[in-house]
Each structure stands twice: as structure tokens, then as C-alpha cells.
Design a protein around this nucleic acid. Structure first.
Lengths: 246, 246
DNA sequence: GCTGAGAACTTGTCTGAACAAGTTGGCCCC
DNA sequence: GGGGCCAACTTGTTCAGACAAGTTCTCAGC
């Protein structure tokens, strides 16, 4: 919590949580908040802009801001990593590496990770679970420059993201996710302890660093009876988009 | 295109599209752009903030902004509506109402639409297609105060959103989407011309007005061989969240 | 009691300025 | 040639003020 506008955004979130500002009610005017926190109107606007993009409050020119919802479920911020998400829900994340090998980058790998074709890239097949029950099969390809750091990780480590950050300072900053549904393959079925052809939620994603350099791409398949995804869209912040099949 | 910062954002998007600023290259400094467009630094910052949240450019304090990608696929902005999306891709959206009836609101309907239980709400079962091929089954429940306007709509109308806007001025401003995978039911299979138990991508969504008033909630099932969804996440803009099954 | 006009209020846009914090490149020295 | 330090550059944060554009409330008039 470093900057003033982040502090104010957080105080407002908490105030909404403890129903100081009721859902459906109105937030104080910008000038009111500015006076109360002893900052300029611009700083207040930065704070409320954050809440607006989170969908907590609605905003229209001329009218006071309205509280739309209290904090969505619980977790909202730091849940890019499966392990972090599980911990935030009070459940234990487990992980197990089933197979791991270097293969020369295919044309597809090379394009997605911005590498030259043929460079050896690390393929990892991992099963992840909540409290021991398998819920996710992850097939990940890591860029050559990060592979050595991944290779050394304990096969049973619950959080790869965490270990990569501690080991190399790497931060996953951007992600592009393509979501669809597929029938479980024989291998999926065995690893997740379900029947073949059961529906799975597939998320194919590319994760990049702050500089926009791709780190990994992954095909994740979730047991759809255990995990779903939630997306919030608002006017001017259209994170969710449809795509036709290639 | 009314405000100056929107204009500048658009010019930058176009400049990136025509590779004036190459992917991987650097954007001019804020002061540079401010001078070039004859505006203050604050206005330039509003413009580049839009591109950052779209994932087109990356930003780190101290370093020049980097171009991460050219415009994502094509459509980005105005694709909340199925019909608008289809048109933007040069395909024709079709729609057909299979069934339509008023039922008293269940406790679930009432909670999601913020109505009193028992109020008659309009249930509509609709099949939608691209160029005649069915790709989507939509089971929608409309709030009582908008139902009359929906009821009057031509059963074969391609765009309900458009007609509602023209008829009542209603704008869909916010949406909460929960995504998972399900096996096709017998009815789904018949309507979509696929086999039962084939995997479908299910999107359950609640759409609200600018004031945060829920308008409709819907269970949409997409043929996963025809349509997928794409979500862009960035640091500080975490639209995508996992959820456990209820 | 209802309607319509207008005043008061509120958010959106924009300016110009200053300092803080982080990055990059070049220069000097070894 | 290589390493390290510093200066120049760039983005992030914050302020104070001004006007535009839209909403809400009040009050007069019917």
C-alpha cells in the first residue's frame, strides 16, 4: 500500500464491505471525498476509477456514483496463480509433475513464445488438485530462457509462480486466455479420475512479462464440476471477447 | 469520437495497426506525444491508459512504453451483442425464438434480477446461428419491467440488443459472466444439431443497466467447435477469476 | 396534485506545474 | 575490454483550477 490513491481505493472497498455505503446507495461526491481525505479531486478520481473497473461502483456523468456490489466473492486481486487462489479460499493446492522433457520448438511454439523454431523448449505435464482431489491438467511449454529455472523445481511443488518469482524475480504481468470446452481425452480422464468424453473447460493461455516478453504457453483443462471462471465486463472495459474457431 | 483523449487513443491504435510503431518497438514519450497533438500530458496519459488496459502496449515507470501487439483479432469494442459481433466479422447472425412464456419468478430469478419472488418474468428460449448454422442456445429470463418490450420483438430478429435500444433507449452497461463446460442435453443436441453429451461452453451471465439495475439473466450454451472466448488480463486489471463449483 | 423551467450539484475533460521513482546509456577508470 | 557510477530521460503521483455536460431537486405556475 504505497500510493495515496491506492490507499483511498482500499478504504472505500472496506467501507463498502462493512456496508457503510450500502449496495444500491450513493457514494459521496468527489469533492466531498477529496475534502475528507485531504487530497485533490484528481487523486480521488484515480481511486474510484479502480473500483469502477472492478465493477463495484457505477458511474454516470452528472449523477452521484452508485454502489453496485460489495467485494465479489472474496478473492479479487492476486489470483493469477492457482496456488495463491487456492490458499485465498482456505484450500490446499497440490501439484504433481507427470512428465517433463525438452523438445525442439515447433512453428506454433516459436510463434507463441517469440522464439526461433527448433530451439529446445521445456514441455511439462502437470496435474493439480484442491485438497488432494485432482481438478486440473496443465500442459505447459516454457520459453528456452526460463526453462533452466523451471527444470530445477520440485515436481511436487504447489506453486510454480511463487518459486519462479523467488528464484529469478520473474513477474507474470499480462495474460491472454482463450476459453472453450472439449471432451476429456483418455489421458485427461485417467489423470483427473473421470470418464472419457466428459466435458472439460479448456483455457489456452500465453503469459508474458511486464516487457511483453512471452514466458510460457499452456493448455489447461479443468474439471467443470469443480472449477468455473468468472469475468466482469463493463462499458469501456471489455475484457471478454468472442472468437470463432480457427 | 467526441473527446480529445479518445481521438488520440484511436490515432495511436491506427498507427500501431499500420506498423508506424512496430510490435516490440517503443512508443514516443508522453511529452513528445503531448507536443505533437498539442495537448497536455494528462490528456495523453488518458489515451495511453486505454491502450494499456486493452493490452496493446506495456508500461513501466522510468522506461518508454513498448508496443506489445497490434489490434487483438479485429473486434474489440462493441461486441457485447451477438449480432454486432457477427456483423463485425462479416458473417450474418440469425435468431429464432423456440419458446416464450411468462412464469412466476423463482427465488433464484428474484435474487439475480433483484425482483420480488412470484412476479411474472419472461422466459425465452432462442437459437442463434452464424450464416444459418446454429451455434448457440440461449435461455434468457427478462426482468418484469423490460418484458413487455421484449415480447413484442419479431421472433426471427437477429439483434435483440439493438431493438431494445431503439425501442426503449436501454443500454447494457455491465455484465458478470460465469463460464464452465457442460455436456449437451437432449434438447441442446437437437437444437444445435450435434450429439448428446458433446461438450458445450456454458456462459451464465447477468446484464445490468448503467445504474446497476439487472435487466436479464441468461444461460448461453455455445458449440465449442464454432465459438470460443478470449479474455485479456493485465496487472491491475484482473477481469478473469476462478471460482469453485457452488 | 402535476408539470415544466431553472438553479444547484456532480461527474467528465483538460491544463500546467512540480516532484518522486525507476530506467537507460554513456563516460570514466581500472 | 569490462565494470561501475552518474546524468539525462521517462513514467508515476499529486495538486489546484477551470469549464463542459449531464442529473437532480426545488419551486412557481397551472
Amino acid at each position: 500500500m504505497s500510493t495515496r490513491h491506492e490507499e483511498i481505493a482500499d478504504e472505500l472497498r472496506q467501507a463498502i464491505d462493512r456496508e457503510e455505503y450500502a449496495v444500491g446507495g450513493r457514494l459521496p461526491a468527489e469533492t466531498e471525498l477529496a475534502a475528507r481525505y485531504g487530497v485533490s479531486r484528481g487523486t480521488v478520481r484515480q481511486a474510484v476509477a479502480a473500483l469502477t473497473s472492478e465493477g463495484l461502483i457505477g458511474s454516470r456523468q452528472g449523477a452521484r456514483r452508485v454502489v453496485l456490489a460489495s467485494r465479489r466473492s472474496q478473492s479479487f486481486a492476486e489470483l493469477r496463480s492457482f496456488a495463491q487462489w487456492a490458499r485465498a479460499m482456505g484450500r490446499e493446492a497440490t501439484g504433481r509433475v507427470v512428465a517433463q522433457e525438452y523438445l525442439p520448438a515447433s512453428a506454433q511454439d516459436a510463434a507463441r513464445l517469440q522464439l526461433r523454431p527448433g530451439v529446445p523448449v521445456l514441455h511439462v505435464l502437470r496435474v493439480r488438485g484442491l485438497d488432494g482431489e485432482p481438478v486440473l491438467v496443465e500442459r505447459t511449454v516454457y520459453a528456452d530462457w526460463i526453462s533452466p529455472a523451471v527444470e530445477g523445481i520440485d515436481p511436487d511443488a504447489p506453486s510454480v509462480t511463487q518459486l519462479l518469482f523467488e528464484g529469478t524475480g520473474l513477474v507474470f504481468a499480462y495474460g491472454e486466455h482463450v476459453i472453450d470446452a472439449v471432451a476429456a481425452s483418455a489421458q485427461d480422464a485417467e489423470l483427473l479420475d473421470i470418464r472419457r468424453t466428459n466435458p472439460l473447460l479448456r483455457v489456452r493461455r500465453v503469459t508474458t512479462t511486464r516487457e511483453g516478453r512471452p514466458v510460457e504457453w499452456s493448455d489447461d483443462r479443468y474439471r467443470s464440476d469443480a472449477v468455473s471462471f468468472s469475468v466482469h465486463n463493463s462499458i469501456g472495459n471489455n475484457a471478454l471477447a468472442r472468437k470463432t474457431a480457427e
